[in-house]
Amino acid sequence: MEPKIKITGLDFYYNGRPVLENICMEVVENTITAVTGPSGQGKSTLLMTLNRLWESIEGARVKGDIQIRFGQKFQNIYDPGFRVSELRKKVGMVFQMPNPLPMSIYKNIVFPLKLTGDHKQKDAAFRVETALKRSFLWEEVKDRLNEDARSLSGGQQQRLCIARALILNPEVLLLDEPTSSLDDTSGRMIEALLLEVKKTCTLLLVSHYLDQVKRIADKGMHLSRGQITQEW
């Protein structure tokens, strides 16, 4: 039960207005930590500070300290020497709306490997298969890997996006309300696969379904008005 992420004194400002104030939290390795709370109060922003994705937003500013442990050593992810693209390969993210790229299913999954230049290697197809199996999608798509990813159903698309995030074997996976755009059955399927993924990965889940959080989260915290108001 070792800690994986340590956040201390994190502030986030958007156009001078505080969105997050003095966030302090710890996330334990191989667990699902859930963040709940009313919408528009900084839950997604909190996730974006962990893979620095907010940096592409105009007018945003971050203060504070976020340490993530890679191997044995904790590293400050805002260290000038820490390259953003390396960070994002280790800290994957899944968004609220499924966001498959306009290409085939196979190309979608292999896309992160293309970014590192590994997509031509012999094990690429095998890694795609593994990632699809981990996200419970392999049986449904193994015969149609060359079809357009947008021809899949919403639930399948979201599992595709999870598979795409998993192919790089990230150590942390950020999930921004991954089931809120899906029907109940698809949502349950994603919950089940997250419990599998947890064995090798540390998950941070933003959700506003309390029952979902109770079903799968090991730890939860409530975020309201930019501050963590309770933990359990």
Binding site: L53, R88, M93, F95, F111, L115, A165, L168
Partner: peptide, 8 residues
């Protein structure tokens, strides 16, 4: 944001 979130 898709590609940056994957490390592009």
């Amino acid at each position: 944001l898709t590609a940056p979130s994957l490390g592009a």
